[in-house]
Design a binder for these strands. Structure first.
Length: 280
DNA sequence: GCGACAG
DNA sequence: ATCTTGTCGC
């Protein structure tokens, strides 16, 4: 398994290569979400807005369809909720700040959770859920690390490379690596690099040739004025994104809460699905 | 033996 | 991840 992760790390692109053969590359501002979604009554379903509905671009659609140019990128948030021996993988797709689709899959679990091997336990189930998605995602936001991983192949990188889909990892705690600066009690918007240390290997399996490389960042997405302190997020490139852009993207995806909206929505949706299975 | 660690 | 009420503070 570790060798496979080294191969994945070697195939991963930790540089900006967003966009698609059809759709043009995009930046953080193209995926920005200004207002947080109201989850008091559950995760809102797909909208039927008049902005850009399911316009199945018909043939010969150069760039003349709309005056505003191409449609915004589709960002999918992915999160899971666990049952006895199965897992609910939920996906919420956003485009232009609106929910365009939400799906889920329930898959059996075989491998236990082992630090560093998370993708082997949750990767398959996530692919199951992604297979039920009808829209084509341009970016995936994962719950867990990307490049911040012993072999630089966290779940965001693992799945991102498998599908050759741009992806970022958003973890709530640090798996490995060392922050440049002390991470405690920082103001919202603050961030510091996380560098490879003795626990991080290069695809060749060595540790000294990567030491010092920036593999991600600690990012303070939210902070309270006086009271309780909020821990920072640990964000890292999954695939086809640089560490710097990853921070900018996650920042743009946050709308007032600690977690970026896509993950916050997927998290709530996964819980909702789990409950609907439990009491039925 | 110690370190020691995403979800 | 998950088990779970109250509780501190704006």
């Amino acid at each position: 398994m570790e060798d496979l992760q080294r191969e994945i790390a070697a195939a991963a692109v930790f540089e900006d290569d967003l966009g698609d053969g059809n759709a043009p590359a995009f930046g953080p501002d193209a995926v920005a979400i200004d207002d947080p979604f109201d989850l008091t009554e559950g995760v809102p379903g797909p909208e039927r807005g008049d902005a850009f509905e399911s316009t199945l671009e018909t043939f010969g659609s150069d760039e003349s369809s709309s005056s505003s140019g191409a449609a915004p990128p589709v960002v999918v948030g992915i999160d899971q909720a666990f049952l006895e021996d199965a897992v609910v993988s939920a996906i919420v797709a956003l485009q232009g700040g609106r929910i365009v689709e939400r799906t889920h899959a329930v898959s059996p679990l075989s491998i236990p959770y082992i630090p560093g091997l998370l993708a082997f336990r949750e990767g398959g189930p996530i692919l199951d859920a992604l297979a039920t998605l009808s829209v084509d995602p341009d970016l995936a936001v994962f719950d867990g690390s990307g490049r911040i991983h012993f072999r630089q192949a966290g779940i965001a990188t693992h799945v991102g490379v498998a599908l050759d889909l741009p992806s970022v990892g958003v973890a709530k705690s640090l798996l490995c690596g060392t922050p440049d600066a002390d991470v405690d009690e920082r103001p919202a918007g603050w961030s510091t690099p996380i560098r490879a240390d003795g626990h991080v290997e290069s695809p060749e399996g060595t540790t000294d040739d990567v030491a010092g490389t920036v593999i991600g960042h600690a990012f303070q997405s939210r902070q309270y004025p006086n009271s309780r302190r909020v821990n920072p997020l640990y964000v890292s490139p999954g695939h086809r994104v640089s560490a710097t852009t990853t921070v900018a993207i996650v920042d743009a995806l946050c709308a007032g809460y600690k977690l970026p909206e896509p993950t916050r929505l997927a998290d709530a949706y996964a819980d909702a699905v789990k409950r609907s299975i439990g009491d039925s």
